[in-house]
Structure formats: C-alpha cells, structure tokens
Write a protein that binds this DNA or RNA. Structure first.
Length: 275
DNA sequence: GTGCTTGTTGGCCA
DNA sequence: GTGGCCAACAAGCA
C-alpha cells in the first residue's frame, strides 16, 4: 500500500508513540532479506540504548534518527507497515524488525518482503537519504523540470514515467492513476506527445494530489486517522478504482482497467482519450 | 488450483 | 551511453 502520504502516516505512528524513548531491545528476523547489506552486530549494538530523537519521511523512504548519530532507514516496499504494540508483544512471522522501547513495541512488518532496512552511523547524511529526488511539493519541482523529463522519456507511456522516482518521488500506482485521471490524460499516451498545457495541468495535479493525500492522513492534533481511505473523498478515483463495476466519479461512465507500463492501470475512457 | 497485487532492480535489447 | 521493457523477488488473497 505505501505511497507518499501513507509513508508519512506510518512515520507519524512510530514517532508519536516513541519519540524521546530509549530502545531497550532490538529484535531482527532470521530471514535476512530486508536486512541485506547490514552489519547486524553493529546494527544491534548501535540501536540498543539509543534514544529516538526525530523522524522524517520523503518519497517512499523514512528515516528515524537516534542519539549517537544513528540513522535507521525504512522502505515499506509493497506490503510493509509500521505498527505500535504494547510491551510484551511477541513478534509474528512477518515482523522483520522490532524495537522495544521504554513504553512501546515498534514493529516493522512486511509479508511480501519487498521492503528494506537501511542503517547509518555518522554526522553526515547517509547516501540512501541524500539520493532522494527533490519533493513534488518543493520549489525544485517545476514545470520546466517536468517538461524536460517527459521529453527525455518521450517514447514511454506517461503512466510509466509518473512512476519514476527520480522525478516523481513518492508517486505510486494509485497516485499515478489519480493524477492522470484528474488531468484528463490517457495513461498510455507517449510522454513526448503531451502538449505544454497538458504538462502544466499534469504538474499542477501532481502537487494537488500530493497535498491532499497528506491532508487525508494528517489527522487532528495527535490523533491519526485509522488509515488513508477514511480521509479520501468519494470524488476521487481512489475510492472507485478497485470496485467491480466501478464508475468514474466525474462522468458516471464505467472505468477501464488494463496493464500499462507494466502495471495495473485504471482510467475513465470518457475523460481520458488517446487522441 | 489460477491469477492477480499500491515497489524496485538488474538484465537484455534497440 | 541511453532509454524502454520485463522478469524476478514472496506471500496472501479472491
């Protein structure tokens, strides 16, 4: 599930529970797939006793910073989630990392194991954080930058281009479909055929979808909504795309589904034409 | 049993 | 060298 705003949602969940707390125990799963490349003894040593000081989310990546210049990076992959459990929780089959703090049990669970855990000790910014593209809601995400990127990827379907993290960090499958639907652009259009007004619309809708997706998970004060779905209105494609016989919330016409750019894609043929 | 799945990477090919 | 496509990764669900 995790795209941009959902990643922020999970970051907040751990942060709100445990910021300021110290890690008493670090448990890692025997299956090391998510921990690939880590020096496990060093990982355990550095995190044990460390205090959670701050946390950050960018694109689909999270960083939890602990005392002693310890960075814990988490990518949720396809099916990862961060949970907060009570003390005494016993880890399940898919719990790959468990941090027991003074008051909580922080759990990273991921059945499909496409996620990844990163780690860094030092006052410098780790490479896995530095390499992230500038956020869509930052000033660096300009119409000109998008235009240039679409030109370079001109022969690829626009759907595939929107999934490229080097320019559209945090956009995943449903966000890409949402952005194209709101922009009235057919997902199979070659990126290089978009007209300047279409690119401007696409740029604007990228920003709108990001902004509103964040708002949907923001909650009020310290409370988080149960999940992203409760915050997203029925006027979005989001709430119709997976339903059998789903209809476009703008036109009322049936939605179409196909594999485009190698991914399941949903669009409204009434609004998004191939030209 | 079959055929999907909200992500990323590396290999192959033009 | 660059860009585009696709299989692979693994497990759960309908």
């Amino acid at each position: 599930m995790p795209e941009l705003a959902e990643v922020e949602f999970f970051r907040k969940r751990w942060h709100q529970a445990a910021v300021g707390e110290r890690v008493a125990t670090v448990l890692t799963h025997d299956r090391k797939r998510l921990l690939r490349g880590l020096n496990l003894p060093q990982f355990h040593r550095a995190l044990t006793g460390a205090q959670l000081e701050s946390s950050h989310a960018a694109a689909k990546q999270m960083a939890f910073r602990f005392s002693g210049d310890v960075w814990l990076g988490i990518h949720l992959g396809m099916s990862g989630e961060l949970k907060v459990e009570a003390l005494g929780y016993s880890p399940g089959k898919h719990d790959h990392l468990v941090l027991v703090t003074e008051g909580h049990t922080l759990v990273f669970t991921d059945p499909r194991m496409f996620g990844r855990i990163e780690f860094h000790v030092g006052s410098d910014v780790p490479h896995w954080w530095k390499r992230l593209a500038p956020p869509i809601l930052s000033p660096a995400f300009t119409v000109a930058a998008v235009t240039q990127f679409l030109t370079r990827r001109g022969r690829a379907p626009i759907k595939a281009v929107l999934l490229m993290q080097e320019r559209f960090p945090g956009v995943g499958n449903w966000m890409a479909d949402e952005i194209l639907w709101r922009s009235s652009i057919h997902p199979a259009r070659r990126a290089g055929t978009l007209q300047p007004e279409e690119i401007r619309t696409l740029w604007r809708e990228c920003r709108t979808v990001c902004r509103q997706a964040f708002a949907a998970v923001a909650g009020r004060g310290d409370t988080l909504p149960a999940n992203l779905n409760v915050g997203i209105p029925d006027t979005w494609l989001f709430n119709h795309r997976w339903r059998r016989g789903g209809r476009c919330p703008k036109s009322g016409r049936p939605l179409a589904h196909a594999t485009i750019g190698g991914r399941t894609t949903c669009w409204s043929p009434a609004r998004q034409k191939l030209k």
